[in-house]
């Protein structure tokens, strides 16, 4: 077994439930490499919801809370609030994170609460058998858009930026080295970090949208369609060409929510003491 797997996988849970050729295994490896490089395994608390990507953290030998569909981020907030020193990481999907759980993404980003949200985007509801997702392209035929999708896809990165996230990146499973580097940045970032990973789903997206169930074809599709740029101002230009811009988009420093809470608590306690005792 890969030494990373030997060290960090919950071996009694193997084999993975992921389909052959799925991108989730590559994300597991990229993430574990980041964890190993930083040596933060004991500080991690993982949260997930429902969907293929929600199983990613379950195979990792960390403390893992895999709760309800769409509600990984509120679970992460509960974990962070009960012990701010832990590093909280959410694994979610495009359906889990942008549709049923979209509201929580907006509000967690708005709070700039310290956590990393990894959203695995395969452009489809894969676990339930290939239904349209908020990330599915216009015209795509899925099990629930048999005549073609009429709805414009949602860009999770733009939502995260508009909502107040302080670190935002997008890569794909064709960029595993960049992904590990970005995971490390995100784990060290103080505040709300959002990492979108475009991932191949040969079984659903490949067969029904892109035209081939071959894993190689689907990975090649990502390589051909993702354009890495350093300057986020070029994103619009790339999108206009029908391609997907990837790269580190944003990293800024803003007051982090739990630190603000601790500051406020300290202040009100001192004020209460000055006034003499409790109420």
């Amino acid at each position: 077994m890969n030494p990373l797997g030997e060290k960090y996988l919950r071996k009694s849970f193997l084999p993975f439930l992921f389909c052959p050729g799925c991108g989730d295994g590559m994300i597991v490896q990229s993430f574990l490499q980041a964890v190993d490089d930083l040596g933060v395994a004991d500080d991690l608390a993982m949260a997930a919801g429902i969907g293929c990507s929600a199983w990613i953290p379950v195979y990792m030998h960390f403390d893992v809370f895999k709760g309800l569909h769409g509600r990984a981020i509120p679970a992460a907030i509960g974990l962070k609030a009960s012990r701010p020193s832990r590093k909280v990481v959410v694994f979610t999907g495009d359906g889990d994170g942008l549709a049923i759980g979209g509201l929580h993404l907006i509000h967690a980003a708005r709070r700039n609460i310290d956590m990393t949200v990894v959203i695995v985007n395969n452009q489809i509801y894969a676990m339930t058998g290939g239904q349209v997702a908020p990330s599915t392209g216009v015209g795509s035929r899925t099990q629930t858009t048999p005549y073609g999708n009429l709805e414009k896809p949602l860009d999770g990165c733009k939502i995260a930026i508009a909502s107040g996230a302080t670190m935002v990146s997008r890569w794909s499973t064709a960029h595993t080295r960049q992904l590990t580097r970005t995971f490390k940045k995100a784990l060290n970032h103080k505040g709300f970090s959002f990492v979108e990973v475009l991932s191949q789903c040969p079984v659903q997206t490949g067969r029904y949208i892109l035209g081939s169930g071959s894993p190689q074809f689907n990975l090649q599709w990502l390589k051909d369609n993702c354009v890495a740029v350093k300057d986020p101002s070029q994103w619009g230009e790339i999108e206009a060409q029908g391609k997907i811009p990837v790269g580190d988009i944003l990293q800024i420093e803003k007051p982090e929510f739990m630190e603000e809470v601790q500051r406020m608590n300290q202040k009100v306690k001192e004020e209460a003491q000055a006034k003499g005792g409790d109420r």
């Binding site: 809370f65 309800l68 509120p74 679970a75 509960g78 974990l79 009960s82 832990r86 929580h104």
Partner: peptide, 21 residues
């Protein structure tokens, strides 16, 4: 915490319990 809805409130309460407390 005043959450964005009751779903988020209840989920965070469950997770905070596992978080310790």
């Amino acid at each position: 915490l005043q959450m964005e809805d009751e779903i988020a409130a209840m989920v965070s309460v469950v997770a905070a319990s596992w978080g310790g407390g």
